[in-house]
Write a protein that binds this DNA or RNA. Structure first.
Lengths: 137, 137
DNA sequence: CCTATATAGTAATATTATAACATGATGAGC
DNA sequence: GCTCATCATGTTATAATATTACTATATAGG
């Protein structure tokens, strides 16, 4: 297996590719156990197979964990380089998840961190509410 | 039991007061099961007693849930009126949790939401990294 | 008193995540 | 090609977090 370097597309193992495929094929976030069920036909038997692949995919920046849902989404952020600072808007009605990069908000948070002497490694930003469509209805 | 109105200090039930006491007496976040263990001496027997009290306390804005820790903290934010938009910096070394109100960052997120037609009900903002003390060491 | 609502107790179970240990594949250096 | 270190995998069991379902009790308002 070739090593992963920053800015490379890491080559994925079979399990990692299967898990990523499940996520990219889904139109929304999936829990680890939902992924497990999707991949039983491919030979998956145990949660750890999913969790281990997810750990790597998150490391690679190809998948994000949604903390407030205990679920995972493939990164839809084209050309995104700062995978540790994506933000998500989650519709509580229809489940739609929209990824975006809140650069300005991140700058404000960095300012706070600087003033506080806090060395920021990762941010979790998740908005809950109603998407445009569900608001209209 | 008197009703809770916005801007009131709601009167708490016995269980709610016990759970809040456990959290204010702690110098950091507690999980629901940690709270349960602390309150066994007071007669708590089951997780649901804790979860039900936590639900109410979070409703009241007196307790926050830290999504990335599956844990809870008493609100330390004096005079805070926007309990749905607190932010937290979590030190991954020592566990210190610092609550703050990221007004500017929230404005940026509100701008994004407005442009997107997303009706924001609640935000989760959690920073992970190293606190000042741990950075120094 | 009657009833609607909120709170509470308890047992069982569902959901999410990890520990522990054995096995197999791969690549670097010799 | 062999050896070793490393990483990925498979499997079982278990831990940690959260909810469902059902019952009972209290209380405020009519």
């Amino acid at each position: 297996m070739s090593a992963h370097h920053e800015n490379d597309q890491p080559s994925l193992t079979k399990n990692q590719a299967l898990v990523l495929g499940a996520l990219t094929g889904s139109n929304g976030p999936l829990t680890a156990y939902a992924i497990l069920d999707l991949l039983r036909a491919d030979g998956f038997r145990a949660p750890l197979q999913v969790y281990r692949a997810l750990d790597k995919l998150v490391d690679f920046g190809m998948v994000h964990r949604l903390e407030s849902l205990n679920a995972f989404v493939a990164c839809r952020h084209p050309g995104c380089t700062s995978h540790d600072s994506a933000a998500f808007a989650i519709c509580e009605q229809c489940g739609l998840v929209t990824e975006f990069t809140p650069d300005k908000a991140l700058d404000m948070l960095k300012d706070w961190a600087k003033g506080e002497g806090f060395q920021m490694a990762k941010t979790t930003i998740e908005l809950r509410g109603l998407c445009r469509t569900c608001t209209a209805h």
